[in-house]
Design a protein around this nucleic acid. Structure first.
Lengths: 130, 130
DNA sequence: TCAACATCTTCGAATATTCTAAGACACCAA
DNA sequence: TTGGTGTCTTAGAATATTCGAAGATGTTGA
């Protein structure tokens, strides 16, 4: 068996492609809309507020990369998420982001507490000026 | 408390920005290199094979978005991953991708088994021509 | 202060992605 | 077979990201 034409790209590139695929608001929404089952293109289109061309483009991209799967039923096409672990990805991202939010909210609190000045004026995270 | 100047963007946009940040081979590698602890810019630079400008650019981007954190020690700057859950993201992505690989490998096997023809010529996944 | 080193910034060119609009195609019901 | 609906494709313009090169800044030790 031949090692086929295109040398398979390094893992970190495959991963990057995969994350880049998720790196678009409309595509994140598609995943969220598909969280509880398949939907037709029309459903998604109206939920996203895109025209059918744009919707189709995103869906096609995601299917090509193996994130989505589709099935035709009459004149409609139903899309679904292929691997449920994809939702785990969204969930972990949500956790990370809400932790960030919490932290920055904390900093904001400190900021407004003008009266309080820590013993050592400069914090560790302070080494970049600008 | 005022709702501050910039209306906070919808969650799906924040998530998308976050994934897009991970959507670059060099940045994925940085995360992998930081899996077991902090590294200096120079370490990362030589591992990535970039010039110091490019390295700095990626690191700065990741720090601005809150994925990395840095500390200066003398003339060096050490970077580290801020939230360990970030690695979980990489891990889940790896799982999804290797499942995909396995599946396509399976299809490839079928493909080379030219003799075998299923009872019904068309499969379900076959509704898109082209 | 100066030289050496590490890191950061900036800017324009190169490249990639997304948007928009127009029309093509597939399927169903009449 | 024809019209209507739903989905897909394409191509070029608009926009965003990345690359490469040059130099600025900050830190240490002499």
């Amino acid at each position: 068996m031949p090692t086929s034409g295109d040398a398979s790209p390094p893992i970190y590139r495959v991963k990057a492609d995969f994350f880049r695929l998720l790196g678009h608001p409309a595509r994140v929404r598609v995943l969220e809309l598909l969280r509880d089952g398949e939907r037709t293109v029309g459903d998604l289109r109206s939920a996203l507020g895109l025209d059918s061309g744009g919707t189709s483009q995103h869906l096609t991209t995601m299917r090509r990369q193996g994130v989505l799967d589709s099935r035709r039923a009459g004149t409609n096409v139903y899309y679904r998420v292929k691997d449920p672990r994809t939702f785990q990805l969204l969930e972990v991202a949500r956790q990370i982001l809400s932790a960030q939010l919490e932290e920055s909210r904390g900093l904001l609190g400190e900021l407004s507490a003008v009266e309080f000045v820590p013993a050592d004026g400069a914090t560790d995270a302070d080494h970049r000026s600008r």
